[in-house]
Nucleic acid binder design. Structure first.
Length: 567
RNA sequence: CGGGAUGUAGCGCAGCCUGGUAGCGCACCACAAUGGGGUUGUGGGGGUCGGAAGUUCGAAUCUUCUCAUCCCGACCA
């Protein structure tokens, strides 16, 4: 490809609203252009990268025995009403009407459609197991689209769905998909980690997220210093402390804490550590409000809380008025003593003694409080987020925390969808049985952004070779005047093209500085500079984008040199 | 959903307070010089100021409404 025949529109300036580096670089290189909030054009340049990722994904899916198909982006409401997700999915679901006033949605995912397809097509256990996939546009009406294509509303996703007679068969396919995902991200050239995840609303028995590690990641991942253990912080279990509860030393006292509401304010006021204070959160319960109790320096994990049988889902904190009814005080002074509701304490709280808690009276706290002697709780649970230094749940090493960008997610769905949509097959006994399902997604457009987050420097993108829009760029110095340069450049360009190398020739009539800057911004892995200076010695210059080291190579050896690098 | 802000040329911005029918940089076009790290000069094209209504002789500028976009927050206990 010659630059003058391509659409190359780079920019020096970044739009003011591009916050993260991948978004900035995608705009500056001209890979994407914004059409509206969370909506992007993929330009010819950007599409090249997208297609390469798609190709790798497709090849690995096919290799794992999955069958590609395409489902509509627009889906009838009826299917979503069958699974009750028409209402449950919430505002993320973009609902539309056709001319006759019939309800549809723009698909944010395709469980309903594929399950409908399967119940029509699959009648016998002999057809199982089977896995279908598609690479399709999705739409999710995000509350707050941001970070360019990282959290866009319309995006490209690979979604696969597997069907089985039983859970063992599902686990088998699940393991294969897990492996296929590792293959995909390795081939793309990313540093990633599969982590245990909460299976959330979708339910089911097992789930892993695939995260590309990058500081700008929106998710926190807890991993062990000693083993392969890794989990989304939402899911990472915090083990019960091994220490037992110390004996009470202090007297129970009521103390004035005027206007001290937060843990930090109370700790500062009393000159004690937040670790000696407990915080009591009142949340909506299934029947009546429930109190969740944490150590002052710990963070509540809402996912863990919402998963408890006693706690209402979705997780909601009580409003100020409701708090008044339960605790007779403002939020800042809630305490566990004489609190008239079901009390669930975190594992760390259960072994505390001589602690400080709110007095259920404004501007007052209690100190020297002890379990058993002064008050009691109903239940002990793991309620908090893991933090650095906690023991790893698998017993090996301690927890560290990294940031990750979720680019893939695999679930063992079980038979929830098949049950609600009556997707059944006849088993070997001739009996009707709901199919067991798995689902497996990859955010293809997000992978592009994640790859940039992980591979860039101050000059621009540094593409992993497998997904680079071009693999080689030729930069002619003064080609318009020097016949010799022109000749050498065209010779090399044609040779590489004939060998099937994706080569970009910058034939614009521009200053060398602009060429270098653009080549580096675009992140093309291999750069060849051809000018009179090196041709005098029968040589051209080779530079790798990654390490920016420039070397001279004999003119007649450069093709071999490149081929060995591209192999 | 709550709070804050912004909409003026493709992009980044000034002008608005103190009304008099738009300006800068980048990008774009032409010519010339330059020709190994975003070069320089000259000359151009392009916007009616998010939209609507109002005040006024006159509105980018003042008022009201509206739309759009962006940021922050949604554990305070």
């Amino acid at each position: 490809m010659k630059t003058t025949q391509f659409h190359l529109q780079t920019r020096k300036e970044t739009p003011a609203d591009a916050e993260i580096i991948s978004h900035q670089l995608m705009i500056r290189t001209g890979m994407i252009s914004r059409l509206g909030s969370g909506l992007y054009n993929w330009t010819p340049l950007g599409l090249k990268v997208l297609r390469k990722i798609e190709k790798i994904v497709r090849e690995e899916m096919d290799k794992a025995g999955c069958l590609e198909m395409i489902m509509p982006t627009i889906q009838p409401a009826g299917l979503w009403q069958e699974t009750a997700r028409w209402d449950k999915y919430g505002d993320l679901l973009l609902k539309i009407k056709d001319r006759a006033g019939r309800d549809f949605c723009f698909g944010p995912t395709h469980e309903e459609v594929i399950t409908d397809f399967a119940r029509k097509e699959i009648k016998s256990y002999k057809q199982l197991p089977i896995t279908f996939y598609q690479i399709q546009t999705k739409f999710r009406d995000e509350i707050r689209p941001r970070f360019g294509v990282m959290r866009a509303r319309e995006f490209l996703m690979k979604d696969a769905y597997s069907f089985h007679l039983n859970i063992d068969c599902l686990k088998d396919t699940y393991a294969k998909m897990h492996q296929a995902y590792c293959n995909i991200f390795e081939r793309i050239g990313l540093t990633f980690r599969p982590v245990e995840a909460d299976s959330g609303e979708i339910g089911g028995t097992g789930s892993h997220e695939f995260h590309v590690l990058a500081d700008s990641g929106e998710d926190a991942i807890a991993y062990s210093t000693e083993s392969d253990y890794a989990a989304n912080i939402e899911k990472c279990e915090v083990l019960a402390p091994t220490k037992s509860r110390p004996e009470p030393q202090q007297e129970l006292k009521i103390i004035d804490t005027p206007n001290k509401k937060s843990i930090q304010e109370v700790a500062d006021f009393l000159a004690i550590s937040p670790k000696k204070i407990i915080k009591t959160l009142l949340v909506a319960g299934v029947d009546a409000p429930v109190a969740l109790v944490l150590r002052g320096d710990h963070e509540l994990n809402e996912i863990k809380a919402a998963n408890l049988a006693e706690v209402a889902s979705p997780f909601t904190l009580l409003e100020d008025e409701e708090i008044k009814q339960v605790a007779q005080c403002d939020a800042g002074s809630i305490g566990v003593k004489d609190l008239n509701c079901h009390i669930i304490v975190d594992r760390a709280v259960a072994i505390m003694s001589d602690f400080v808690t709110g007095a259920n009276e404004d501007d007052k706290h209690l100190s020297g409080v002890n379990w058993q002697r002064d008050t009691s709780f109903n239940q002990v649970e793991d309620l908090r987020n893991a933090k650095v230094g906690d023991p790893s749940p698998d017993g090996k090493g301690t927890i560290k925390i990294a940031r990750g960008i979720e680019v893939g997610h695999i679930f063992q769905l079980g038979d929830v969808y098949a049950q609600s949509m009556n997707a059944v097959v006849l088993n070997e006994q001739g009996k009707s049985q709901a199919m067991t399902m798995g689902c497996y997604s990859i955010g293809v457009t997000r992978v592009v952004a994640a790859a940039i987050e992980q591979n860039h420097d101050e000059k621009g993108i540094i593409w992993p070779q497998q997904i680079a829009p071009f693999t080689v760029v030729i930069l002619p110095m003064n080609m318009k005047k020097s016949e010799r340069v022109k000749q050498a450049v065209n010779d090399l360009y044609n040779q590489l093209k004939n060998l099937g190398v994706e080569v970009l020739l910058d034939d614009r009539k521009i200053r060398p500085g602009v060429m270098f800057a653009d080549a580096e911004l675009l992140g093309i892995p291999h750069q060849i500079t051809i000018g009179d200076r090196s041709l005098d010695d029968g040589e051209v210059e080779y530079k790798s984008r990654k390490d920016m080291q420039s070397i001279r190579v004999k003119q007649d050896e450069i093709v071999d040199h490149l081929q060995s690098l591209l192999a």
